[in-house]
Design a protein around this nucleic acid. Structure first.
Lengths: 325, 325
DNA sequence: TTGAAAGCGCTAACAC
DNA sequence: GTGTTAGCGCTTTCAA
């Protein structure tokens, strides 16, 4: 910067003003031009770190995730957060903790040392968490997870609306006897999707039939194993807890010579691309809005959007219609 | 830091020395203890940015990716890079460019302004790239891609070895007539895996039979469509260009009433978890080492490991045996 | 064994 | 309009 000033024959203050296009700074056309030329000539690049130090406020946002890689989903959260942060001139600092508390504290400490504007704490599946102590030392928003007592702003998928939507799609295709293969794992997804399923049935004037909900491991194996129970139930459509379960069910159904959707309709959840878009027939499902979760997290953190006064911010799970209904 | 010094009754220089555990610094036990107490009392945290400014050397590594989210794979690269960077006291700055050149330049500029130690430029599938001009302004290593003329250090999966390994596994199960469903997309994967397939056959004394390699779209649909050709070929085993192709082939085979692996063995490539580990039977495949790619990229960047004098650094694709052979 | 002081690159009052 | 200068929080000679 000094060099630029020297070449342009001005002071560093002037350089700073033109480089940052300062609002209230009156700079002569000539001086401005000379500075710009010098910048170009020298290939000058401002030092963002020095700027931060001097202004006392950084453009970093930290993202600490419990599992960047285990699932395709985490990547989408990063992606959404990154895009949104970028849009507002912020930069993402990422750290993976593998769910390990020590790594977590270290990661948070490191972000604090780098003067992050705030931290996004994310998990790869929607759940309640214990808030790490260290998070209280800066602004934090929880992404795809939430804390008891709503002590921190959080943004999570609207599981209930998702379950409702999924069921409604089946209802819209005139199904009345709709089975639901739910996960055996206690989670907001388990209760939320079930509540949505019941709400949709109720709204359609269909009585909830407990014997139509089947517990299963939330994977291909679970869906496959549920096949005969589904068949016995005489359901004409089945809403699966997730796409993987639906994939397993496809296999089971096929073995019994059943056609989808002619003989039985199938609805998934998650919109896991590698699966849903490529099963035969392609799978209708409800999308988990991971990208939006990341983006909304950043917006809350930057105060661009107000957090709901009570409870986490809910992001809608939109239906993705393909050919299994 | 000044506050700590004041409370401990020493100078900031002394605080700096004890906080950083400086080697050649003689600090009295008493002073050291007082500083440590003051640090604890104040909850003092060093400002990493100020440190960088003063030392002139940062602990940032930039990762620019063309697609963080499109695929589960990109996440693994980030994960590997992050873990390795972390291990050496570095922090990852990530940017997504969606393959857009403008975003790319902006991302690189931003990283440069943040004084990154170097940049990891990664793509989500192995290919040759045009090196963005801006990358030459700092140390760069290419991850999962490479540049013509080997102008930049690069680290990529060893496609040929992967193809060889896959074929060898089939050979080891006593198959002699092995079909290969290759992608129609020109790429290092296309040529490398084919070369590996041929090499393995040659080593086993089996003549290469052109009519045993089938072109197909690298997705479920391609594998499914190739079914009848595979059946006509009388092959007893098939090596699929990737797991998605294998998944499609599973469907096709099942429709023809064939059992895997009793009637025909199937080998995949990629080790895409959501698929490979959960097909029935589970799919034997070869893993694309994305995590390792990211980690090795960081090692090359930090000079912890020498780059090969010619060509990219090859990372092995290990076999993952399950139940389809 | 410890401290004073210069300087890292930049911003922001304020003076001219 | 433009320049001077005092920091921002830290490291690092060098002197004491």
């Amino acid at each position: 910067m000094r060099d630029v000033a020297k070449i342009a024959g001005v002071s560093v203050a002037t350089v700073s003003h033109v480089v940052n296009d300062k609002a209230g700074a009156r700079i002569g056309d000539d001086a401005r031009r000379r500075v710009q030329e010098a910048v170009a000539e020298l290939g000058y690049r401002p030092n963002a770190l020095a700027k931060t130090l001097s202004q006392g406020t950084s453009r970093f946002i930290g993202l600490v995730a419990d599992a960047i890689a285990t699932t395709p989903f985490a990547g989408q959260i990063i992606h959404g957060a990154q895009d949104e942060a970028w849009k507002h001139g912020y930069v993402l600092l990422v750290a993976n903790t593998d769910g390990n508390a020590a790594a977590e504290n270290e990661a948070i400490a490191m972000m604090l040392e780098h003067q992050v504007h705030g931290i996004l704490y994310s998990t790869w599946y929607h759940r309640e968490i214990q808030v790490p102590e260290a998070l209280h030392q800066t602004d934090t928003v929880l992404v795809d997870c939430f804390a008891a007592g709503n002590v921190l702003p959080a943004v999570v998928p609207d599981e209930e609306q998702g379950g409702r939507t999924a069921t409604e799609e089946l209802l819209a295709a005139s199904h009345r006897r709709i089975a639901f293969i739910n996960t055996t794992t206690p989670s907001p997804a388990q209760t939320g999707r079930l509540a949505g399923y019941r709400a949709a049935l109720a709204a359609a004037g269909i009585e909830f039939d407990e014997s139509l909900v089947f517990p299963a491991a939330p994977e291909q194996e679970g869906g496959y194993a549920a096949t005969s129970a589904i068949l016995d139930s005489k359901a004409t459509a089945v809403f699966c807890h997730n796409d993987r379960v639906a994939m397993g069910l496809y296999d089971g159904l096929r073995e019994h010579g059943l056609r989808i959707p002619e003989d039985i309709a199938v609805m998934g959840f998650d919109n896991q691309d590698v699966i849903a878009a490529h099963l035969r027939p392609t799978l209708s499902t409800v999308a988990l809005p991971h990208y939006e979760l990341g983006a909304a997290g950043v917006r809350l953190l930057l105060g661009l959007e107000p957090a709901p006064e009570s409870g986490p911010k809910l992001i809608a799970c939109p239906p993705v219609l393909r050919h299994s209904i």
